[in-house]
Design a protein around this nucleic acid. Structure first.
Lengths: 196, 196
DNA sequence: CCCATTAATTACCGATCGGTATAGAATAGC
DNA sequence: GCTATTCTATACCGATCGGTAATTAATGGG
């Protein structure tokens, strides 16, 4: 098994580096030279290991969802009540969006919020990802409503869209340099008027 | 006065076309070819009239602020009470962000939320613009607080940041294809818990 | 009418874009 | 050791990027 020359770099490490570059510069703003330099590998190695720029982005995004900040998002849905779910979503977001260990903001928002026609499929994939996150939150709120955890009069889809919009707005603020404290203020403000 | 050959295009019309392209594709995603095609002028005409791509963007942004959606934002601050200001901000945003007459979303958000180092100054200018809008809202809330229009316990800066985040999040949602009704739901949800 | 001035057109510039052909280096199985 | 296989390194590809030089066309002032 495993014939041939072994690769001299760790694929997951390289992917993490690529993720950071896409995170900071967006899909189109990240050039192959930026990527190879950050990943510490040559251009042919990148193509051999990851296909092309678009597939590399998808792999990086996958990693962002599975092991990055997006993983905490889905983990928060497991909290026992809707109120605690939202508390964790907003507070974790304030924390993660300003974590100095990685670029400010959210890859799913700033990866390709606008782009040329050539990158349309990337933009669509990102908005589909955000939509999935919102849908998962809607389901969580539907469950909460069924459990009497949210008022019977509440509208889970609207609540989820509201929270999603707030999180995405916090991501824009973080991208613009907002501090963790400022984002926490926004989070607490929203929590102060949460219906439960 | 006015010597030389007269230009064959209307500069403001051309600027509006450029604004649309930047709005849809972002600063970096919009190529000179995209721009000249949409503006209906040749490349040297563009450079003679507007300097270069960066200055063209700044001119288009200026126009966006003065005569575009951003103008309505500042107009809303003139409403008599904080409550009505926020009502108009959120509802006008839901309307404008999904107006089929122009690209979905907000130029100040999707013009360059992330970019390469080469476009950093554009990104900075946009985040400064958003920051100005937020600061103007803070001042409006301070006035409202002084007028007893907002509770004495309220924090104008936090309220403004909360509203700004919500608006920016709505812009992200619109960019992803959210409908006007969906954004209005978010607006009404936020208004339902407004402190006054 | 002629000239100075400005705009439009064509054709082009070097640089960088994403992507690859080719050849050499390192492994496993035989 | 030899071969098949896989990775790495150099050097390169056509296309497109933002930006311009040079020429021609249209105006106003003298």
């Amino acid at each position: 098994m495993a014939k041939g020359r072994p690769r001299e770099f760790d694929a997951e490490e390289a992917l993490d580096k690529a993720m950071m570059v896409f995170w900071q510069q967006g899909f189109e703003g990240a050039s192959l030279s930026d990527l190879t330099e950050a990943m510490g590998i040559s251009r042919p190695s990148l193509y051999a290991a990851f296909g092309n720029k678009e597939e590399l982005f998808r792999r990086a995004l996958e990693r962002y969802v599975e092991t990055g900040p997006a993983a905490k998002y889905f983990a928060a849905l497991a909290e026992p009540t809707a109120r605690v779910v939202v508390e964790r979503l907003l507070r974790d977001a304030a924390q993660s969006l300003t974590d100095p260990c990685h670029p400010a903001g959210c890859l799913s928002v700033q990866g390709a919020l606008s782009c040329s026609e050539a990158a349309q499929s990337i933009k669509d994939e990102l908005s589909a990802l955000r939509c999935n996150g919102e849908a998962a939150l809607t389901e969580r709120f539907e469950r909460a409503k069924a459990e009497g955890d949210l008022p019977a009069s509440s509208n889970p889809a609207v609540l989820a869209r509201y929270v999603a919009a707030l999180l995405q707005g916090m991501a824009v603020q973080a991208s613009g340099g907002a501090t963790r404290e400022q984002l926490l203020d926004v989070a607490e403000m929203a929590l102060g008027s949460w219906p439960s």
